[in-house]
Simulated assay, not measured.
Amino acid sequence: MIAFVLAAALLIDPTPKKDVSFKTPQATVERTQDAETGPTLTAVAVTLECTARATGRVTGCRVLGETHPGLGFGEAALALMRDAEVAPGPREVQFARTIQFMP
C-alpha cells in the first residue's frame, strides 16, 4: 500500500502547465516604396489545394487564395506543383499548401 501511495506521489507533477495554443501563420505582405520605380512587393503567398494519389503523384491542384490576385503568382504556384510527388500511401489524400514568393 505504501508503494502505491509513493508511486502516485511521484507521478503527480505539481508544476503549473503552460497554455500552448497554435496559431495559423498569416501570410505577411509588405510593400516598400522606391522613389524611382514606385511600390515593390516584398512577399506574396498563394494557397493551393491538391490531391496526393496513392501512387505518390500530386494532381488536381487549384488556387484557394492569393494575397495579390491577377499578378500571375497563382499560375506560378500551380506550375511549381505540376510535377510534384509525395511518398506513396494507402489512399488518396487532399491537402493544402501555402507557397510564399520572396524577392
Score class of each variant (00 low, 15 high):
residue 1 M to Y: 14
residue 2 I to V: 15
residue 4 F to N: 09
residue 4 F to E: 09
residue 4 F to D: 11
residue 5 V to F: 15
residue 5 V to N: 06
residue 5 V to M: 12
residue 5 V to S: 07
residue 5 V to W: 14
residue 5 V to K: 13
residue 7 A to D: 09
residue 8 A to M: 06
residue 8 A to K: 08
residue 8 A to Q: 06
residue 9 A to W: 02
residue 10 L to R: 07
residue 11 L to W: 15
residue 12 I to H: 10
residue 13 D to Y: 15
residue 14 P to M: 03
residue 15 T to R: 15
residue 16 P to I: 01
residue 17 K to A: 15
residue 17 K to L: 15
residue 19 D to E: 15
residue 19 D to F: 14
residue 19 D to K: 14
residue 19 D to P: 04
residue 20 V to R: 03
residue 20 V to I: 14
residue 21 S to P: 03
residue 22 F to Y: 14
residue 22 F to M: 10
residue 23 K to G: 06
residue 24 T to C: 05
residue 24 T to Q: 11
residue 24 T to P: 05
residue 24 T to K: 09
residue 25 P to G: 04
residue 26 Q to E: 10
residue 26 Q to D: 05
residue 26 Q to P: 01
residue 27 A to H: 10
residue 27 A to T: 07
residue 28 T to R: 15
residue 29 V to T: 09
residue 29 V to M: 14
residue 30 E to G: 01
residue 30 E to K: 11
residue 31 R to G: 08
residue 32 T to V: 12
residue 33 Q to L: 08
residue 33 Q to T: 08
residue 33 Q to V: 07
residue 33 Q to E: 15
residue 34 D to G: 06
residue 35 A to E: 10
residue 36 E to Y: 14
residue 37 T to Y: 15
residue 38 G to Y: 04
residue 39 P to H: 12
residue 40 T to S: 13
residue 40 T to V: 15
residue 40 T to R: 04
residue 41 L to M: 07
residue 41 L to T: 00
residue 41 L to G: 00
residue 43 A to L: 05
residue 44 V to I: 10
residue 44 V to M: 01
residue 44 V to G: 01
residue 45 A to W: 02
residue 45 A to T: 00
residue 47 T to W: 09
residue 47 T to P: 02
residue 48 L to N: 00
residue 50 C to F: 09
residue 50 C to Q: 02
residue 51 T to W: 01
residue 51 T to Y: 00
residue 52 A to G: 02
residue 52 A to M: 04
residue 53 R to D: 00
residue 54 A to W: 07
residue 55 T to W: 03
residue 55 T to R: 02
residue 56 G to V: 00
residue 58 V to H: 05
residue 60 G to L: 05
residue 60 G to W: 01
residue 60 G to E: 11
residue 61 C to W: 01
residue 62 R to K: 15
residue 62 R to P: 03
residue 62 R to L: 11
residue 64 L to M: 13
residue 65 G to H: 06
residue 66 E to A: 05
residue 66 E to I: 02
residue 66 E to G: 01
residue 67 T to L: 04
residue 67 T to S: 09
residue 68 H to N: 03
residue 68 H to P: 01
residue 68 H to I: 08
residue 69 P to C: 13
residue 69 P to V: 05
residue 70 G to T: 10
residue 71 L to Q: 14
residue 71 L to C: 08
residue 72 G to W: 14
residue 73 F to Y: 05
residue 73 F to Q: 02
residue 73 F to T: 00
residue 74 G to A: 04
residue 75 E to F: 05
residue 75 E to N: 12
residue 75 E to R: 13
residue 75 E to M: 13
residue 75 E to C: 10
residue 75 E to S: 11
residue 76 A to Q: 09
residue 77 A to G: 02
residue 78 L to I: 09
residue 78 L to D: 03
residue 81 M to Q: 03
residue 82 R to Y: 13
residue 83 D to F: 13
residue 83 D to G: 13
residue 83 D to H: 10
residue 84 A to E: 01
residue 84 A to W: 02
residue 84 A to N: 00
residue 86 V to L: 05
residue 86 V to R: 03
residue 88 P to M: 00
residue 89 G to A: 12
residue 90 P to C: 06
residue 92 E to Q: 07
residue 93 V to W: 08
residue 93 V to L: 12
residue 95 F to M: 09
residue 95 F to D: 03
residue 96 A to Y: 11
residue 96 A to D: 12
residue 96 A to H: 12
residue 96 A to F: 11
residue 96 A to S: 14
residue 97 R to W: 12
residue 98 T to L: 08
residue 99 I to G: 00
residue 100 Q to I: 02
